[in-house]
Amino acid sequence: PEPEISQLALLFMGKGSGNYYKADTIPVNGKEISLEDLTTAMLEEVRKLYGVDLTTDSKLQEGLSLHLRGLLQRLRDRTQVDNVYLEELRWRFPLIYDMGVTASRKLHEILGIQLDPNEIGFLALHLGAAYTIHRKPSKYRAVVVFPSDQALATVVIEKIRRQFQDRMDVVAVLDAYEKKRVEDLNPDLILTTLPLDHGLNVPTVQLSVFYSQENESQIFQQLNRLDKNRQKDIFQHRIRELIKPEYFLETLDASDSEDVIRKMCQPLVKAGCIPPEYADAVLEREGYAPTSFAAGFALPHALNVTIRESAISVAHLDHPLQWGDHSVDFVLLLAIREEDRELLGIFFDWWIQIISDPLRFGLLKEKNGYAAFVQAILEEK
Rank of each mutant, 00 (worst) to 15 (best):
E2C: 01
S6C: 08
A9D: 08
S17A: 15
D24G: 12
P27M: 10
V28S: 05
E32S: 10
M42R: 09
E45N: 12
L64C: 08
H67G: 06
Q73V: 11
R78T: 14
R78F: 14
V84H: 07
Y85N: 13
F93N: 08
F93L: 09
M99D: 03
T102E: 11
L115A: 05
D116N: 15
A124M: 11
A130S: 15
Y131Q: 02
T132C: 00
R135E: 13
R135I: 12
S138F: 04
K139M: 10
F146I: 09
D149T: 01
T154K: 15
R161N: 05
Q163D: 07
A172N: 05
V173D: 00
D175R: 15
E183A: 15
D184L: 13
L185D: 04
N186E: 13
P187K: 04
L189G: 01
L189Q: 04
L200R: 11
T204I: 08
Q206G: 01
L207K: 06
S208R: 11
V209W: 05
E216K: 14
Q218P: 00
Q221F: 07
Q222N: 02
R240T: 03
E246F: 06
E250A: 01
A254E: 02
M264V: 01
K270Y: 14
G272D: 03
I274F: 05
V282H: 06
T291L: 00
A298W: 13
L303H: 10
L303F: 06
S310R: 11
S313T: 02
V314F: 04
P320D: 08
W323G: 00
D325W: 06
H326W: 13
V331G: 07
R337L: 14
R341Y: 03
L343E: 06
I354E: 05
P358I: 11
N368D: 08
A372H: 11
F373L: 05
V374Y: 10
E380F: 06
